[in-house]
């Protein structure tokens, strides 16, 4: 368990890493990455029991699957700063011959990544499979997954949601990043998701809402509560209300920064709002 100041320092540093990675190659997805920073910092530093000397099977450790793979900058930063690979490697993000592909993959052997993601809607099924194997192996650790809210428009998510409840996959905590935005606009405008709480509840999940998804304390206590709910015969869903672009004022609350990079001036502005705490790569 990390002390609170260290977690706050990590959040600031990870935000710097995100905008610097995206700026360096003038491509990538900063908005969703910034919005999920508190969640992933909390998960990897306060919640999960995991081993940075990575092995694919991950037996007797908690596992995390990123289903919305486009927020790769944040997972790369969090993994690097957890010791999975050198932070200097963040310099190679989206460049030729890099292990840090545009969307996370296993193909180049990047430690910490157990499945490719990017084509949306597949991660919940993968997480369920990993959770089933844990049960077969008598491994009591948990499986976590993260999904975009727009991603829930993919039908496979609901195949998976139905399966997990029907088969009592209760060692799974699936978090939905509810930022209300997707590429073409707000989720309400593009394809209204309806009442997700009622939907997951009707599918047979335990649903927990974290209203302040960019507040470290709220995220940690939400995750702790979710962990308490495991083992009850039902999968657990966290509806995590976040703000796209959180921590960089001009990126906040809009879908405009879903998939574009800041220019030099915007980078300087973004960095000035997120002090260097643990050393830039």
């Amino acid at each position: 368990m990390a002390d609170k100041q260290h977690l706050k320092d990590l959040v600031s540093q990870v935000r710097r890493d995100i905008v610097r990675q995206v700026h360096a190659v003038n491509s990538g997805h900063p908005g969703g990455s910034l919005g999920c920073t508190e969640f992933l910092v909390a998960l990897y530093n306060e919640i999960m029991d995991h081993n940075p000397s990575f092995n694919m099977d991950g037996t007797n450790e908690d596992l995390f699957f990123l289903s919305n793979g486009h927020i790769s900058p944040v997972i790369y930063s969090v993994l690097a700063r957890s010791g999975y690979f050198p932070v200097e490697e963040l310099n190679t993000f989206r460049k030729l011959d890099s292990r840090l592909q545009g969307h996370p993959t296993t193909h180049e052997g990047l430690p910490g990544i157990r499945i490719a993601s990017g084509s949306l809607g597949q991660g919940m099924s993968v997480a369920i499979g990993a959770a089933a194997t844990k049960k077969l192996n008598g491994d009591s650790k948990l499986v976590f997954s993260l999904h975009g809210d727009g991603e829930l428009q993919e039908g496979q998510i609901w195949e998976a949601a139905m399966y997990a409840a029907a088969n009592k996959v209760d060692n799974l905590i699936a978090t939905i990043d509810l930022n209300g935005q997707q590429i073409d606009g707000s989720t309400d405008e593009v394809l209204d998701l309806g009442d997700l709480g009622k939907k997951f509840d009707a599918f047979g999940w335990q649903v927990l809402r974290v209203k302040k998804g960019n507040d470290l304390d709220a995220v940690i206590s939400g995750l702790q509560e979710a962990v308490e709910l495991t083992g009850n015969g039902k999968p657990v869903c966290i509806l995590l209300h976040t703000e796209m672009g959180h921590g960089v004022d001009f990126m906040m609350g809009s879908h405009a920064w879903h998939g574009i990079a800041p220019n030099d001036e915007q980078l300087a502005d973004a960095l000035s709002q997120n002090p260097e705490t643990l050393g830039d790569y």
Partner: peptide, 28 residues
């Protein structure tokens, strides 16, 4: 019965689950 997984008429979920089950050493 514990090693057989009836997924219903949901082939996409079946393929994703199979991928996930390999993590931890199963051969789906």
């Amino acid at each position: 019965p514990n090693r057989f997984f009836q997924v219903g008429i949901a082939e996409a979920n079946m393929m994703g689950m199979a991928a996930g089950m390999t993590i931890g050493g199963k051969i789906p």
